[in-house]
């Protein structure tokens, strides 16, 4: 069976959807936990694997790709609406 998402690096707290995910559906995580999808998430977009508090790092490829602008709930879509990607802020 085709995978429904992929976690690229063990440190990551987001996964990549491998098909369009529907709000309300439940996915089985590799560690056996269930992940309830909180929004319609398009194929190749990011889905949060845990609750990420405001200001906390969002990790993909094992690297920080930005910080949560707001509390990102486990199962939520992660994109520019809730992910702060301001480079200058992080480098200072």
């Amino acid at each position: 069976m085709a995978s429904q998402f992929i976690i690229i690096h063990p440190r990551d707290n987001v996964a990549i959807a491998l098909r369009n995910l529907k709000r309300g559906e439940e996915l089985l995580l590799p560690d056996g936990r269930l992940l309830t999808i909180l929004a319609d998430i398009a194929y190749s977009h990011k889905v949060s694997l845990e609750d990420i508090p405001i200001g906390a790092a969002v990790m993909k490829y094992g690297e920080i790709i930005g910080e949560a602008k707001e509390l990102i709930r486990k199962g939520d879509w992660v994109h520019k609406h809730n992910l702060d990607i301001d480079d200058k802020k992080r480098q200072s």
């Binding site: 690229i8 990549i16 959807a17 398009a42 194929y43 190749s44 977009h45 990011k46 993909k60 490829y61 094992g62 690297e63 790709i65 930005g66 992660v78 994109h79 520019k80 992910l83 990607i85 480079d87």
Partner: peptide
């Protein structure tokens, strides 16, 4: 290609430099 799920140029480039491992 934000529509493709990339939120930043960093994320796109990370997908390239990941070839070189860690």
């Amino acid at each position: 290609n934000m529509d493709g799920g990339m939120t930043s140029i960093r994320e796109k480039s990370l997908g390239c430099i990941v070839k070189a491992g860690s």
